[in-house]
């Protein structure tokens, strides 16, 4: 169990996170917020890369900073911009990380091979990392985060650079692993966690804005999302979320508190909630 208690992070006068409180048990948690809203800072605080200005983070009721190596041995972290040594092969780089994780040589080799196969990198494991594509590097970084069979997995924007097929494979992989561990996934791509996450955390104004199951979050907008023709006269407080071209002209996806007669009622998605919370950035 991971517990975040009154955690704040400031850089000088700039407050990045303010009084974050979370209790996180096994399962997949999606952290959603626009760029620059503090997702990465929260991930880094949990990964002990940053130190809270106020508050503490606990793993099984023990402060993570006092646990030190014991805590990091159950942690798997994939940073937003994973780095690599250009002249290493994927296998060599992962072997190096395995040593840093304190994994015995034979076990590490077996684990690396299994995971590389799982992310379809096994045919390229002897290729130098400088010759890898962006997607391949991303997959190598995912393997690096999973090498020590972590109980707590932090993935910061892990699907950036992955093609649709790889994304599906990645989601399946996370789903398989999620039964007995905590997976925290930060992203601004809502579709990544729509079907995957057990709980979704929205960050707004430097703090936790919503923390609930996707179904409960979507239910906030039940009966409020409509498909509306472009020439329809919208009520004053209605908000256009999306414009979709169709055979009968452009159809608007609209959120309205008042019923819109003659318009088709749609099922709300997490993206609708996202747009209602953060607005549309032009």
């Amino acid at each position: 169990m991971l517990r975040i208690e009154h955690v704040s992070k400031r850089y000088g006068k700039k407050e990045v996170l303010k009084d974050i409180n979370l209790e996180i048990g096994p399962g997949i948690y999606g952290i959603i917020a626009p760029n620059g809203a503090g997702k990465t800072t929260l991930m880094k605080l949990i990964a002990t890369l940053l130190f809270p200005t106020e508050g503490s983070i606990y793993w099984n009721e023990q402060e993570i900073l006092s646990l030190g190596a014991e805590y990091r041995s159950i942690l798997g972290y994939m940073p937003q911009k994973p780095g690599y040594y250009r002249n290493y092969t994927a296998f060599d780089f992962l072997s190096y990380i395995a040593v840093l994780q304190g994994i015995p040589h034979d076990a590490a080799e077996e684990k690396i091979r299994t995971l590389l196969t799982r992310v379809n990198l096994d045919p390229d494991d002897r290729k130098k990392l400088k010759n890898y594509s962006g997607g391949m590097l991303q997959r190598a970084a995912i393997v690096q985060a999973l090498l020590n069979d972590p109980k707590l997995i932090l993935l910061d924007e892990p699907t950036a650079g992955l093609d649709p097929g790889e994304r599906v494979n990645f989601r399946n992989m996370l789903h398989e692993m999620s039964s007995d561990r905590i997976i925290l996934l930060s992203t601004h791509i809502v579709s990544d966690i729509e079907t995957l996450a057990d709980r979704v955390i929205f960050l707004k104004d430097q703090t936790v804005y919503v923390n609930d199951t996707p179904a409960n979050i979507r239910s906030i907008l039940d009966g409020k999302i409509y498909a509306v023709p472009q020439d329809y006269l919208l009520p004053h407080n209605a908000k256009v979320l999306e414009e979709q071209p169709s055979d009968n002209g452009t159809i608007l996806r609209v959120c309205s508190n008042k019923p819109l007669p003659g318009c088709k009622l749609l099922k709300p998605t997490l993206e609708d909630v996202y747009l209602m919370i953060y607005g549309i950035r032009k």
Binding site: K44, A47, T48, L49, G68, A69, R72, S73, L75, Y77, M78, P79, K81, P82, G83, Y84, Y85, R86, I97, L100, Q101, G102, A141, Q144, A145, N148, L154
Partner: peptide, 20 residues
């Protein structure tokens, strides 16, 4: 070196951590 190669964070979050 690890900062230049952007590997510092991946490495610092391993068991060895900042002992690197």
């Amino acid at each position: 070196e690890d900062r230049q190669a952007c590997t510092e964070q991946s490495i610092a979050a391993t068991k060895t951590g900042r002992n690197i």
